[in-house]
């Protein structure tokens, strides 16, 4: 990690636990989510599919793949669902769960140091290829 690309976005206790608060870094709008357990997440507020706001609603869970006619809800709090077309992304990785799509939501490494939230806006080390679908 290149520390010089870490941006201090303010005291952690100014971020309400359990819901996104938006911060702007350069031209990026980033949703910061502080969990009850102190874990911090930073997510670009931009769906890679069609540009919808990804941080308007709290993370949710999803239905796990299963046999026809059965339902199993799981992964509570791990999934972000786009309010437009419903695409789901993992909060940890930005990847689409249960899909071979290359589309990836931008997740930034984030941490709390001396009570402040630091977001690393370094370019992704292995940039995910933007899905071809986004050009359609």
């Amino acid at each position: 990690m290149n520390d010089s690309n870490e941006v201090n976005v303010g005291a952690a206790d100014t971020f309400p636990a359990g819901e996104f608060r938006l911060v702007t870094i350069g031209r990026r709008e980033i949703g910061v989510l502080r969990r009850e357990d102190g874990q911090i997440h930073a997510v670009r507020n931009l769906c890679p599919h069609k540009g919808a706001p990804m941080c308007k609603f709290k993370p949710t869970g999803t239905m796990l793949p299963g046999a026809p006619g059965t339902l199993e809800w799981g992964r509570d709090g791990e999934i972000l669902r786009c309010p437009w077309h419903g695409f789901e992304f993992e909060l940890e990785t930005g990847l689409r769960p249960y899909s071979d799509s290359k589309m990836r939501l931008r997740i930034y490494p984030a941490r709390i140091e001396q009570g402040d939230v630091l977001i690393d806006v370094s370019p992704q080390r292995s940039p995910s290829p933007l899905s071809k679908e986004t050009a359609a």
């Binding site: 309400p16 819901e19 996104f20 608060r21 938006l22 709008e29 949703g31 507020n45 931009l46 069609k50 540009g51 919808a52 706001p53 941080c55 308007k56 309010p83 437009w84």
Partner: peptide
Amino acid sequence: MNVETPASSITQ
């Protein structure tokens, strides 16, 4: 979310 930004401003 504390800041309201029309989603659409992102995709204009």
